[in-house]
């Protein structure tokens, strides 16, 4: 069946079964490949997108449940006032190793800063613990969040 989704400010139509997780509708039907598949059970955070501004694991969200919600992906962050700053900090510190988890990390970090512009280390731990980095770039992830929020990078 056809679903029209609001993705990064555009109305896009996809012909998929309603139980198809948003992740696969984005990746395979719409060609939006920034959100990544890592586990399929909301245990790694690689597929994180924003649904009406809230971070969500797109591997767990059926396409039929999206409705009129505004979906933002990593591809939309250049136009997001906070997302843009987070991306810039990620580039300046060259956070990534393999890079595979980083779209999800940036989505979670952007959502954190939207709610909490000056997060402490404990706030960062709480907001980011759902995003695995198998290369363990955690030192730089923390530093980049501090930088994007205009705080000293420990």
């Amino acid at each position: 069946m056809s679903y029209t989704l609001n993705v990064n400010g555009k109305a896009l139509s996809a012909d998929v079964d309603g139980d198809t997780p948003l992740l696969w509708t984005l990746r395979d039907a719409l060609g939006i490949r920034g959100p990544k598949f890592g586990c399929g059970v909301a245990a790694c955070g690689a597929c994180t997108v924003h649904v009406d501004g809230q971070p969500q694991r797109s591997c767990q969200l059926p396409t039929s449940a999206v409705g009129a919600a505004k979906i933002s992906t990593i591809e939309g962050m250049a136009a997001h006032p906070i997302g843009k700053k987070v991306q810039a900090a990620w580039m300046e510190l060259d956070v990534a190793q393999c890079g595979y988890c980083q779209p999800g990390q940036i989505m979670s970090a952007t959502a954190l800063l939207a709610k909490n512009p000056k997060p402490t280390d404990a706030d960062i731990d709480k907001a980011m613990a759902g995003n695995l980095c198998r290369c363990a770039t955690y030192t730089r992830i923390r530093a980049a969040i501090k930088r994007a929020s205009g705080q000293k990078e420990a």
């Binding site: 490949r33 920034g34 959100p35 990544k36 598949f37 992906t73 990593i74 591809e75 962050m77 250049a78 991306q87 990620w90 580039m91 060259d94 956070v95 990534a96 890079g99 595979y100 980083q102 779209p103 940036i106």
Partner: peptide
Amino acid sequence: TPQYDTVKIVTGQPLFGID
């Protein structure tokens, strides 16, 4: 030296095998 792919990684461009 920042890694060559850093901009592509951070902006979510298709880079990986899965993409």
